[in-house]
Design a binder for these strands. Sequence first.
DNA 1: AACTACTCCTGGAGGC
DNA 2: TGCCTCCAGGAGTAGT
Length: 319
Amino acid sequence: MPELPEVELLRRGLADQLPGCRITAIDLRLPKVFRADPRLAVFDACSKTVLAVSRRAKHLIVDLSGELSLVIHLRLSGQLVLRRGDETLVAGGHPVPRFDAPLPHKSTHLIFELANREPVPQPAPPLRLFFTDIRQFGFCHLMRRVSVDGYLEAMSLGPEPLDPALTVDAFREIIGRRPRARLKALLLDQSAVAGLGNIYADESLFLARLQPTRLVGTLDEGEVARLFDAIRATLEYALEHGVAQVLNGRALPGEAFPRAHGRQGEPCPTCGTPIVRVRLGGRSTYYCPRCQPESDGASEQLQESAPAAVRSNGGDAET
DNA sequence: AACTACTCCTGGAGGC
DNA sequence: TGCCTCCAGGAGTAGT
């Protein structure tokens, strides 16, 4: 669930608190969540000082002294919580367990103990960074600083959607390489646009009024520009007003955001038509059939090429 | 090139 | 209440 906005907000919080702090101890409770380059091990991160915290797509990069870096990916259910004693300084990622829950939790797999960067009254409560992940898919990778760029390059990540240097023309060129991909698949492809996940892909398409099943090649110039603007507006909204409130694939009742994702059967906030859910590429996909209509050309192509399940799901048994 | 299916894993929801 | 099944999700891989 943690996508670009969640990771970016976490980065800002950690970048505010961590630089200057020295790692004094590491408690690795589930070895598989900690990866290390050859000839590096978890204890190599001990006694190192945090220099900076940056982000690329959904990866957090914590630069350490000694020319080392930690690359952290929260995947589906990872969360990071920084506490001084019982006081939470920074929290982000997947909201289970609740950020204010007692830690360590049974799914807390990694704990960094840190020395405060400036003198605090003694005895100072310990400063700890908890890595918790109920599904154990997230990881923390220790590598040499010189390896970080190559590591990220190997993933063929696309451009950052909020990078001011990314123009609509560049975006058009990138997506133009995959004319036969469906829009939803395109937005989930990290090599096309880096940082979107299932929730913000649906929200971007809802805002752009484009059906997720449309083929990229059927978009006209205005629609490409609308999609480009919608991706940015969606991510910026989340960064400014708070991230999408979704738990176990459902939008939380009473929350205004997300507007379409996780809201099967609920009225579209724009026109009142019930939001529908389809399965695309194994992912639940939500859209408004009225605000996000099929284009004529795409409609015919999909009737021929898409599996029936893509087209027929107007109202699942649930809800 | 683009798709589906599967893998990793566990909490939560729903059915009985 | 307890057991069972299904689903959610990111990303990688294999097969078609």
